[in-house]
């Protein structure tokens, strides 16, 4: 038995070049099994029991082409959401680094011998680390406090417990730190404006993520593709059995698999913050931010590397 030590962080991969079928299979097998049974029934009835009225000339190519267009349109919309989520988190990585750099380079040292608030600029970077983790938990609907307990002082965490929107409360705390630095004369109004505009960028990233999270794809995009794919898959053996006979179940199930897979991919992508293996790799990205910021602070103990598990990085 090995107690696993925390490994040094190098770089995280988003996805590996492998996709195990066992991740897809649980979502599609029930429908495929039903369709295979139906296809078999149609093929056997037509070929062995001479029920020729079962085979009907259905314009499968035309219907299939129309359905493909519809699915492609819906999958594009879903992919746009997924990609926007990833872009927003990319922006969060950059903005966090900018904020840390500004806090560590633009804030003057305390004047005279006073030590009060000497570490305010460091606290700002630590609040930013906490903010990133809190935003991840907020989007994934996960309790952030076990993590925040080790990142922030106990009394700050207790105050945050009453907040409905913990990352927004942390942004406010950062704003208050800036105010304190300005009042202490360690920031002039130009640098204050610069730092505040970085906080505005963070707020915009959070707003974008919340928009994706709280506004699902219109329900028509959920219901109709599923219904139309089901109808098409049922029509397939009826249209094919006249030409393919007993081979119909193989061809029909294969084509059905493609359409069902397309429909499933769209559903997976449309919700990028759902705490599933298919969503945006928030844990990895927030660890990247923490690593960068802690290195800016000159710390030696760095977070654990987040690597892909079975081809997925979480």
């Amino acid at each position: 038995m090995v107690r696993v030590a925390r490994a040094p962080y190098f770089f995280a991969m988003i996805v590996r070049d492998e996709l195990s079928l066992r991740r897809v299979w649980p979502q599609v097998w029930k429908r495929l099994a039903f369709l295979l049974a139906f296809d078999l029934a149609v093929a056997i009835s037509y070929s062995l029991f001479d029920l020729e009225w079962i085979g009907q000339p259905i314009p499968l190519a035309m219907v299939g082409a129309a359905l493909s267009l519809f699915l492609a349109f819906r999958n594009n919309s879903a992919y746009d959401r997924w990609w926007e989520a990833r872009t927003l988190w990319g922006a969060l990585v950059n903005t966090s680094r900018t904020l840390a750099r500004q806090a560590l380079t633009l804030v003057d040292d305390p004047k005279g011998n006073t030590t009060t608030g000497a570490q305010c600029h460091v606290a700002l970077v630590e609040l930013q680390i906490a903010y990133v983790h809190a935003l991840r938990c907020h989007l994934r609907k996960q309790n952030p406090f076990p993590e925040l307990q080790t990142l922030l002082p106990r009394e700050v965490v207790e105050k945050l417990r009453v907040e409905k929107n913990v990352p927004a409360a942390l942004l406010l705390s950062m704003g208050k730190v800036l105010k304190k630095l300005f009042q202490a004369g360690r920031l002039d109004s130009i640098r204050l404006t610069q730092l505040d505009s970085t906080l505005v960028d963070l707020c915009n990233v959070q707003g974008g993520c919340e928009r994706i999270k709280n506004t699902p794809l219109p329900r028509q995009y959920e219901v109709f593709p599923r219904m139309l794919v089901a109808m098409y898959c049922v029509m397939l053996p009826i249209g094919l059995v006249g030409t393919l006979g007993l081979i119909t179940p193989i061809a029909s199930t294969l084509v059905s698999f493609i359409f069902i897979l397309l429909e499933t991919i769209g559903r997976d992508l449309e919700a990028p913050f759902e705490n599933a293996v298919h969503d945006t790799p928030l844990t990895s990205l927030s660890n990247t931010i923490e690593l960068n910021l802690r290195q800016h602070l000159g710390e030696q103990e760095l977070p654990t590397e987040v690597r892909a598990v079975h081809g997925f990085v979480y």
């Binding site: 983790h133 080790t150 690597r307």
Partner: peptide
């Protein structure tokens, strides 16, 4: 490696 990557935030608990 997989174990350390699963639920990585638990290291901060």
């Amino acid at each position: 490696e997989r174990l350390t990557s699963f639920f990585a935030e638990a290291d901060r608990y």
